[in-house]
Design a protein around this nucleic acid. Structure first.
Lengths: 213, 213
DNA sequence: GTCTATATGCTGATAGAC
DNA sequence: GTCTATCAGCATATAGAC
């Protein structure tokens, strides 16, 4: 299908999709650096390369822009959380889980930051997500760890705190990238850095669980 | 010295100290939950129990309030960072370091949150602190770990990433307390929780470093 | 769909009486 | 030192021409 054969509807749908994505991307940056209140629709429009009125045409108001950014964030969180499968056994499962979280941290640090800011500020918009989805996820996965412990496949490591440690140590490279890069004398993470960090965290956590050496 | 024998200067100095502390405490809460821009002088004044004009009498403007809160935060960070001493050897040093960071997280979660938000948002006000003080601190302590590794007192664990892991896993309980408490079905951390978490993290990290079992 | 002009409301900050 | 009243500026959001 060429541009010439496009229906009017398809054309305008494309413009809409492109504009909406530009706005969401600009908004993500703006909300991270300025916070919700500090972010101005004007700044989002400037960074998206369009007049302020257009932004409000697509999203009606600032709150709706933020909700859309949050929704994107949760989708990524959900897709990137990885899984912990009983049939994998503790070693492989932890390796996979750590790798999934690290990958998410390095491929989408902005989503991680938006999420972190929400939780730090008091789970204002994410209370439902935490109370229901996340609560159940942790309980379910903790049971799998307990199953392995009971079968003698791993040492008695407290599962809930283990999950917290894996979350925190992997997210840290996304959320605190400014601090870490400054300390490491880098402008950005290189591929080598990412490989190195992945190996470090995987080895360290497996050893912490008594699953290596 | 009774109130009656107080000089006028002492009295007013007390009022000032009390008012300033009330303002700083209220401001800390407000900056965490609303962000810098979202925080209003009016809300700070309300939570401090005084008229807005009084707040601006003591601090002149909102920026100055925030700077004062940040200064408090850095002082706490500095006092709570703990130390890593060559003469302690790796095991004791790591035990002490982990314990110091956990203690800070549980005794002053608000300072940890203010700090975290600053770094996530791009070290806007803390670039100097990160570039100079923190950079040097990490390099210095990394050398001590390297010294122990070279002497065969501990396994070759990459020191800089080890420091990041200890920071992140301990701070997490302060910064993400809302999420953690929801998942753990608690309103607040109990003394038992804190002991349990301290033991978990200390054991896990020592094992990760190959210094236990 | 795009853009200009404008209304409305809120916030930081000040002036000045007490 | 405390507090009321008020100003000036800015940001969201809308109306309406193109």
């Amino acid at each position: 299908m060429t541009n010439n054969t496009m229906t009017k509807k398809n054309k305008s749908k494309n413009i809409r999709t492109i504009s909406v994505n530009k706005i969401l991307s600009a908004a993500q940056d703006e909300f991270i650096s300025q916070g919700y209140q500090g972010a101005t629709v004007q700044a989002i429009a400037d960074n998206a390369g369009m007049p302020k009125a257009n932004v409000l045409y697509y999203f009606k108001n600032k709150k709706n822009i933020y909700h859309a950014v949050l929704e994107q964030t949760l989708t990524m969180w959900d897709e990137g959380i990885g899984d912990i499968l009983p049939e994998d056994g503790p070693k492989l499962a932890i390796e996979k889980f750590v790798k999934a979280k690290i990958t998410m941290s390095f491929t989408n640090p902005k989503a991680s930051k938006i999420y972190a800011m929400e939780i730090i500020q008091g789970t204002q918009h994410l209370q439902d997500f935490t109370r229901t989805y996340l609560h159940q996820w942790v309980q379910k996965k903790a049971k799998i760890f307990q199953f392995w412990i009971d079968k003698g496949q791993m040492q008695p490591i407290e599962p809930v705190n283990l999950i917290f440690l894996i979350w925190s140590s992997t997210q840290h490279y996304a959320d605190f990238d400014n601090q870490i890069l400054t300390i490491m004398d880098r402008i950005d993470y290189t591929e080598d850095d990412i490989t190195h960090i992945t190996n470090f965290l995987t080895d360290f956590i497996l050893r912490g669980c008594g699953l290596k050496q």
